[in-house]
Design a protein around this nucleic acid. Structure first.
Lengths: 115, 115
DNA sequence: TGCACGTGCAATAGTTTCTTTGCACATGCA
DNA sequence: TGCATGTGCAAAGAAACTATTGCACGTGCA
């Protein structure tokens, strides 16, 4: 499996380092659900859940799919996307090499010479 | 290898989901260094680095040790602490089971007694 | 004495994250 | 019609995070 870039690692870790979002993933592992149902299970408000879902989707950890129920109601189902990221001093060090610098974005693209 | 609790996972991921702190870990993997030297290598200000180091130390990812150089100067050396955290939908689901609820979080943080 | 080097922290400001509240729009059914 | 269900988003405030600036203290040495 291909490794993640440093920026991807940051995005994934930031998305997962939140109790609500961890619980969302934990719930979706047991099967896809739609937003309102998920909000009831997790005991949080729907707008709050939507924010967290957007965050997880932006990190590529979940996907959404609009489905029309037989009663004609539009329901948005979310599913977990499979991912595997090993966190260790060495993997962090590897990821750090591919981080885009906030200051010098163009340097990171061409030159890799550090010291 | 023992697993981390959900709270520990959150703390570790939050600590690592920052470019500066990833670079700190990456640098320390190549050997322990002291604060000012580390700040020069990473091209960031020393106060900023100290904040990030405190963050990493609070998550248990690095340790510090005060050393007196031969010239009598006190230098604070930091080293990486070994850690291994596998991130996957399943590991997140397991961690989510041991998360302390938001209500109990305040008690655990403010209260002097743990359990 | 003055400079270079090491440590520490506080105050400030700007940005981001988290959460609530409120409103809008649909459909099905009694 | 009125209430249940589903969807969406924006505004607003509190809290946390990020980063800079400034000042304090120490040592060694020209």
């Amino acid at each position: 499996m291909s490794e993640y870039t440093g920026d991807e690692m940051v995005r994934i870790m930031a998305a997962l380092s939140n109790p609500h979002r961890m619980r969302v993933v934990a719930t979706l592992v047991r099967g896809a659900t739609y937003v309102s149902q998920l909000a009831r299970e997790l005991q949080i408000s729907r707008p709050l859940l939507q924010v967290h879902l957007r965050r997880l989707e932006a990190a590529g950890l979940v996907t959404s799919q609009l489905q029309i129920s037989e009663e004609g109601k539009a329901m948005k189902f979310y599913s977990v996307q499979s991912f595997a990221l090993q966190l260790s001093p060495e993997s962090i060090a590897r990821g750090a090499n591919s981080l885009t610098l906030p200051d010098a974005e163009k340097d990171a693209e061409k030159g890799v010479r550090d010291e």
